[in-house]
Design a binder for these strands. Structure first.
Length: 84
DNA sequence: GTTGAGCGTT
């Protein structure tokens, strides 16, 4: 199983393809998904990326705190679907 | 046509 990465603070126009493109540049992206609000059907402005541990570490170290869309991108290790 | 802390569906 690969490592999960939490990606936040991204523009509302960002899609899963964009997220995958950005993360695939640092390693093999297993799955990339942007979380959209199921209640209203709009993007929540954050998503999840699954990659290998080495690639995930490289992507986190490279994209965490970086500027994307004019805002500091937030990249960190994600939790395993915690209950709200 | 709007918004801005956070951890997602099968």
């Amino acid at each position: 199983m690969a490592k999960k990465i939490f990606v936040g603070n991204l523009p509302f126009t960002t899609t899963s393809e964009e997220l995958k493109e950005v993360f695939t540049a640092y390693g093999e992206v297993i799955t990339a998904k942007v979380v959209t609000d199921r209640i209203s059907g709009r993007s929540r402005g954050f998503g999840f990326v699954e990659m290998e541990p080495a690639a995930a570490d490289a992507a986190i170290g490279a994209l965490n705190g970086q500027d994307l869309g004019g805002r500091p991108l937030r990249v960190d290790a994600a939790k395993d679907r915690p209950p709200r």
